[in-house]
């Protein structure tokens, strides 16, 4: 029985001796990581969506409903004359409907009249940072009913993302704490069943780090196990969910980030949390024994 063998042996022994609690702490870590991962991946996807939207420096100006096609087409000069407008392309009602139908299932659109669409201009901007200001100016032009800027979507997505971020930080904090608590109590069982051995180690002058190590190793093993299992589950879950989302929308305006491009990030995050919760759980479990 070597010194290292002793340390690892004790670490594993604790896990099997208190199988139920070990199972509970691994499960809770997995649950915590899955929730954490789901929230983070949701944020990643919203962020890409926001980026996509911001990349399109295109806005759409809708014309008053009662304005005819000729009059509407005549607004072009004024629109192009507005600051920050690079170009403007007139799209008639009928063209707009054709475009729309091309994107969607034609059967759905049967019987839809072109009058539900409006004449419009698709306008390219020089500088998207000025989008809000340009939008306001365009809306003052008589005959323009409404200007749709993606910025609006982008703004609301950013708001949603910020709310999710705040909520998730709180949630993740609570979950990490709960995992830590359960982990620490699991390992406390191991310290309790070995309290006499610990007392003897202290009496003969074993260093605190040596006494602590088997319990930290026990925590690390549980933490690592939890993060690896959580990673596999997360992977499967994400792929299943994203393929459902993609297949239930015929247009992929929702561009879902593939798991392969976040795999390392998820794995590293999960391992970091698992290792930290495990190690600190172990340190905390033995703390009271090392006070004197």
């Amino acid at each position: 029985m070597s010194r290292l063998g002793y340390l690892f042996g004790e670490g594993f022994r604790g896990i099997f001796k208190h199988g139920f609690m070990s199972f509970a702490s691994v499960t809770i870590i997995i649950a915590c990581l899955i929730i954490m991962g789901t929230i983070s991946l949701l944020c990643v996807n919203i962020d890409t969506l926001i980026d996509d939207l911001e990349d399109q420096n295109e806005i759409v100006a809708f014309i008053d409903e009662d304005m005819g096609e000729i009059q509407a087409a005549a607004l072009e000069q004024e629109i192009v004359g507005t600051d920050n407008v690079a170009s403007a392309e007139f799209v008639s009602r009928e063209e707009a409907m054709d475009n729309f139908m091309g994107n969607y299932d034609a059967a759905l659109m049967e019987g839809v009249d072109a009058t539900v669409f409006r004449h419009r201009y698709v306008i390219q901007l020089d500088d998207i940072a000025e989008m809000a200001k340009t939008k306001q100016e365009l809306e003052t032009i008589p005959g323009i009913a409404k200007v749709n800027a993606h910025l609006d979507y982008a703004d609301s997505f950013i708001k949603i993302r910020n709310i999710i971020t705040v909520v998730s930080f709180v949630l993740i904090g609570v979950l990490v704490f709960v995992s830590f608590f359960i982990m620490s109590n699991t390992i406390k069982l191991a310290t309790y069943s070995r309290r006499e051995e610990i007392a003897i180690m202290k009496m003969v002058g074993a260093s605190n780090s040596f006494i602590r190590l088997p319990f930290v190793i026990e925590g690390l093993i549980l933490g690592l196990l939890g993060s690896l299992l959580a990673f596999v589950i997360m992977w499967g879950l994400y792929n299943a969910l994203s393929s459902r989302i993609i297949s239930s929308f015929s247009v992929s305006f929702l561009h879902i980030v593939p798991f392969s491009s976040v795999r390392e990030f998820v794995l590293a995050g999960f391992l970091a949390v698992g290792i930290l919760v495990g190690a600190f759980g172990g340190v905390n479990a033995i703390r009271n024994y090392l006070k004197v």
Binding site: A199, V204, N208, L290
Partner: peptide, 22 residues
């Protein structure tokens, strides 16, 4: 200091009434 206790204890051999064997 607490961290010095292990070294100090190596200079002692302690025996109790109840043996305290594993």
């Amino acid at each position: 200091r607490r961290g010095k206790l292990p070294k100090m204890r190596r200079t002692l051999g302690v025996i109790f009434q109840d043996f305290r064997l594993i």
